[in-house]
Amino acid sequence: MAAVMHNFKPYPSDRDVGMAAEALVTAHPCLKELGSVSGWYGWKIFLKFKMGNYRTKLARSGCVEVAVNSGKRSINNPDKDHPHSKIKRARRAEVNYLPNFPRGENQTSLEEMRIQILQEVEKSEKNLILIEKLMQMTFALRRQEIVQENPLVRDFLEKWPALRMESQVSAEFQRITNVNLRNQFFSELDRHTLRLIALYRQKAARTGKVSEALREILRICDLQEVQDVHMKRNAALRALPLYLREEDPEFFKSWSAEEVDRPDITNTPVAIVSMVTEGTPSEVDLSPASTAILVEGDFVISNIPRMADSFALLFGLMYVLHLDYPKKLINTFTFIQKVLMGLDDGKPLKPCLLNLKNDLLLRE
């Protein structure tokens, strides 16, 4: 049972273990506990201990995903971290969180492949097929580095410059979650766009700062000459944080190409920057000339044609670079994770997100 459960999750939650215990008793009724309300509560406690013992054996055998959390405080080492603190485990439905090296490969051989990727990316005519193959082979090396060492984004991308390519961000996200980033993001966004805009209009009809800001976005959207799918996507994503009552003035930035001195971005953790070629940049621009993704004061990807593409790539980078969601936009990115991307981590949705999800499921 412990081995089967580990194949799904190395660190199952209390709810997960309860479901496994219930399935065990359902498959084998002779194991049902007499006098117990559920009939499987004792098995649940038993399986928790078994999972802990199984993880200990795997850690001793060299399984990286559980070995990373070994060596905590004990009687012989009282100065180390508490056993239950700073546990490194999948928290956002990652499937391949911390894999082992491919069979037959080691640190040295994978490092040679990394240098080969570095040389290939610097070429004017890149061999994209070779880069994809080498990035697939070195996936475990990157995950161990980003999870265990937690380096600065700039330093990590200097070692792995292929992750500045849009195609490799999508590929890396799929390696981590087994979900196609662009297909899933845009198919679900297009499914809910009209309903989202209808909900924005309902809230914009009220009074208050949030309603006023939503009215401004909808007004700009209605004034656009071209009302295509891209414009509607941009409007739906641009107004989403406001609808969820989240505001981060540092997240959406607008720069004019005519400006010589760019604003200070040193202390900006995460932002989507819209570049304007003509006129003065406004706070809300739904059709910028191009967009860019800013992470820890560094332009990770530039010259992205549309804001919705930047949103999708930024969400992918959250997983690829092992970043936390921006504190002021947690609900926005949680909505994208659980509702749009379908990456459920087993935790219940907050009331505001649950209400929005239920509203989207209602017919207009």
Rank of each mutant, 00 (worst) to 15 (best):
P241G: 07
A90F: 00
F186Y: 08
D285V: 12
N77F: 03
F173Y: 10
M113T: 02
L199Y: 01
E125H: 04
D248V: 08
C63F: 13
A205C: 03
Q337A: 02
R219T: 13
Q184N: 06
D344I: 00
W160H: 14
W40M: 01
L130E: 11
P305M: 08
V260Q: 02
F186R: 10
M137D: 14
I146H: 09
K209M: 02
E278S: 13
V147K: 03
R245H: 14
S61V: 08
L362D: 11
E94Y: 11
P151R: 06
M165G: 06
N180V: 04
T207R: 06
P348H: 07
L354C: 10
E278L: 13
T277Y: 12
E172N: 01
W43I: 05
S85C: 13
I336F: 09
R195T: 09
V300Y: 13
N183T: 11
Q337V: 03
E259S: 00
S109K: 13
I265V: 10
I293Q: 05
R175D: 01
T108P: 00
K253P: 00
A93I: 00
Q148K: 15
L313T: 14
R92D: 08
L314A: 02
D16Y: 09
M19R: 15
K209P: 02
F173E: 10
L354K: 11
N77E: 09
E283N: 14
A2T: 05
N100R: 06
K328V: 03
P305S: 12
L199C: 01
E132T: 13
T108H: 08
S310K: 12
F46D: 11
R164H: 11
I115C: 12
T177Q: 00
V17I: 15
I87R: 12
N77K: 12
T291P: 06
R201I: 03
L323Y: 08
A205F: 01
K347I: 06
F173M: 02
E149H: 09
G342M: 01
G35C: 06
A213R: 08
D344W: 10
L98P: 07
D79Y: 15
T268A: 04
A236E: 07
A162Q: 01
I304E: 09
A198R: 03
P99S: 07
Q168D: 06
D298R: 14
I336Y: 00
K123T: 04
E132Q: 13
I304N: 15
L321M: 06
R201L: 12
D79P: 04
H6M: 13
Y54P: 11
I197S: 05
R154F: 05
R73D: 01
Y200P: 05
V226R: 15
W255G: 03
M51S: 10
D16V: 05
N69K: 13
D81T: 15
N234S: 05
E105L: 02
G279Y: 01
C63S: 15
R103H: 10
N127F: 07
M341R: 12
P326Q: 12
Y200R: 03
G346R: 07
K88E: 15
A90H: 01
L361A: 03
V320M: 04
F185S: 03
F315G: 09
K44M: 08
N53M: 14
M231C: 07
A289E: 14
K232T: 05
R92A: 06
R206V: 00
D345Y: 02
F8I: 15
L237D: 06
I117D: 03
L354R: 04
N53P: 00
